[in-house]
Simulated assay, not measured.
Amino acid sequence: MRSTKGLPLAPALALALAGLVPLTGSLTGCALTEDDVVNPREPMSADALPLGAERGPVKRQLSAEETRDQFRDLSAEDYVVKEGDTLWSIANHFLKDPYYWPEIWYANPEIANPHRIYPGDRIQIVFVGDRPRLAVGLRPHIRYESLPPLVAAVPLDLVRPFLTHDQVMTEDEFEAAPYILANREGSIHASSGDTAYVRPPLDGSQQRFAVVEQGKALVDGRTGEHLGYRAIFKGEANVVEIDDPTTVELEDTVREVDEGDRLVEMTDEAFDRDVTPQIPAFPIDATIILLPDAITQVGSQQVIVIDRGMESGVTAGDLLQISKRGRVVEDRFAERDAGEDGREATRGPAVLLPDHPIGTAMVFRAYDRVSYALVIKATQPVHEGDLAQTPVQESRL
Results as ranks from 00 to 15, higher is better:
T4V: 14
T4E: 15
P8M: 07
A14D: 14
A14T: 09
L17N: 09
A18H: 14
G19T: 13
G25L: 06
L27T: 11
G29M: 13
G29H: 06
A31L: 15
L32G: 07
E34R: 03
D36N: 14
V38C: 09
D47I: 08
L49Q: 15
L49N: 08
G52H: 03
E54S: 09
R55M: 06
V58P: 12
Q61G: 07
S63R: 08
E65P: 06
E65W: 09
T67W: 01
D69I: 02
F71S: 08
Y79A: 09
G84N: 07
D85S: 08
L87Q: 02
D97M: 04
Y100E: 02
P102C: 06
E103F: 01
I104F: 07
Y106T: 04
A107L: 09
N113M: 11
N113G: 03
P114F: 02
P114R: 06
H115F: 12
H115L: 11
I117T: 05
I117R: 01
P119T: 04
I125P: 04
F127C: 01
V128Q: 08
D130C: 00
R133N: 07
R133V: 09
L138G: 10
P140F: 04
H141C: 07
H141F: 12
E145R: 13
S146M: 06
L147G: 06
L150S: 14
L150A: 13
A152P: 09
P155V: 06
L158F: 08
P161N: 05
V168G: 10
T170E: 07
A177N: 05
A182T: 15
G186L: 10
I188R: 14
A190P: 15
S191K: 13
T195M: 14
D203K: 11
G204F: 12
Q206D: 10
Q207C: 10
F209G: 01
A210K: 01
V212A: 06
K216G: 13
D220K: 10
D220F: 02
G221V: 05
G224I: 12
L227M: 11
F233V: 09
V239R: 11
E241R: 12
D243N: 14
D244K: 06
T247C: 00
L250Y: 00
D252T: 11
R255K: 08
D258L: 14
D258R: 12
E259C: 09
G260W: 08
M266Q: 15
D272K: 03
R273K: 10
R273L: 07
D274L: 05
T276G: 00
P277E: 00
I279L: 07
P280M: 01
P283H: 11
L291S: 06
Q301I: 04
Q302N: 13
Q302E: 15
I306E: 10
T315I: 14
G317E: 00
G317P: 05
L319I: 05
L320Y: 01
I322F: 00
G326N: 00
R327E: 08
R327F: 03
E330N: 03
D331S: 13
R332D: 10
F333A: 07
R336G: 04
G339R: 03
D341L: 05
E344S: 10
A345L: 13
G348E: 12
P349G: 04
A350R: 11
V351W: 07
V351H: 08
P357I: 00
A361E: 02
M362E: 08
V363N: 00
R365D: 05
Y372P: 05
V375D: 10
T379H: 06
Q380I: 00
V382Q: 01
H383L: 11
G385D: 01
Q389W: 02
V392L: 08
S395Q: 11
L397K: 04
